[in-house]
Simulated scan of single mutants.
Amino acid sequence: NDTGRTDAERAVASVARKITDESRRADIVLNALNTEESLSVKCSLLRVLGGIANSKSLDAVAAASQHADATVRDAAVRTLSQWPNASAAKVLLDIYSDNQNLIHRQLALRGFARMLALPDADRSARESLEMCRKVMSKTRSADEKKQVLSGLGNVAHPDALAMAGQFVEIEAVRTEAAMATIKIAAAIGQTHPDQAKTAIEKVLSVAQIPYLREQAQETLRQIEQAQSHKTQDGK
């Protein structure tokens, strides 16, 4: 049954993660995937690879997202969307940008936005921002824009703040844009106080929701307080 299969997949992944050499953790599963003919077993092995989540696993599951069989493709995309670390972000961006399957696009977008909140030593804030810009250019609805904005809020960069600020003016996504703006402003307020304050003031000029206004005012207060302390320390 499904519960038993899921438990078995998790158990195999758990054992594999205990292998000391991280680069070899997926080798046995990859060998099985390459020789297995049963599509249902292939799908199960893909989910195991998602639990191992090393670079070899990612390459294999990404390749499976282009498999000739729709069931295998679906299992691969779902596995990628739930990837436990941020390494699948670029793969999900490509799926979202190029895939015509609406469900797969939504899964990819949701996973991508979630991964922007995960630590990634190999991805700079600038790279995250460029990825957000690319994804945003492909969005087809306000709901999709909201998901991108939720991820953008984790990008601590002044240009990300400017990007979020553009959407504060759009009523359909104003709440999400305001939340992203407040979060970014709080993150970069120490290093870019003037830009952060300007962005927060813009939120306050249009936001009507009480809790958003409270968050914006508190963030603005903290930025101004930090500026004041810095000025006093410099005297």
Rank of each mutant, 00 (worst) to 15 (best):
T3A: 12
A8C: 09
R10W: 10
R10L: 09
V12C: 05
V12Q: 07
S14C: 07
V15I: 13
A16Q: 03
I19Y: 11
I19D: 08
T20M: 13
R24I: 08
A26S: 15
D27G: 13
I28P: 12
I28C: 11
V29C: 03
V29S: 02
A32E: 11
E36A: 10
E37V: 15
L39D: 14
L39H: 15
L39A: 15
V41H: 14
C43P: 02
S44F: 11
L46N: 02
L46W: 06
L46Q: 03
G50V: 08
K56F: 03
D59C: 08
A60H: 07
A63C: 01
S65H: 10
Q66W: 09
H67G: 03
A68F: 11
D69A: 03
V72H: 01
R73V: 00
R73Q: 01
D74F: 10
A75T: 04
T79N: 04
L80P: 00
P84D: 02
S87K: 12
A88V: 03
A88P: 02
V91K: 12
L93Q: 15
L93D: 09
D94S: 14
D94M: 14
Y96S: 03
S97F: 11
S97Q: 09
N99S: 09
R105I: 06
R105V: 06
R110G: 13
R110D: 15
A113F: 01
M115F: 08
M115Y: 07
P119E: 06
A121K: 11
D122G: 15
A125Q: 12
R126W: 14
S128I: 08
E130V: 15
E130P: 11
E130R: 13
M131A: 12
C132V: 13
C132Q: 08
S137K: 10
S137G: 04
R140P: 12
A142H: 11
G153I: 01
G153E: 00
V155D: 01
V155P: 02
V155K: 04
A156G: 01
D159W: 05
L161F: 03
A162Y: 09
A162E: 08
M163H: 04
Q166G: 09
E169K: 12
A172D: 04
E176A: 07
M179Q: 10
I182Q: 00
K183F: 05
I184S: 00
A186Y: 10
A187C: 08
I188C: 01
G189I: 01
T191P: 11
T191I: 11
H192Q: 05
H192G: 01
P193L: 07
P193W: 10
P193E: 04
A196Y: 08
T198P: 07
A199T: 06
E201F: 04
A207S: 09
I209K: 14
I209R: 13
P210D: 07
P210H: 07
L212Y: 03
T219W: 00
T219C: 01
R221E: 00
Q222V: 06
E224K: 03
Q227E: 10
S228F: 14
H229W: 14
K230C: 12
K230M: 15
T231G: 06
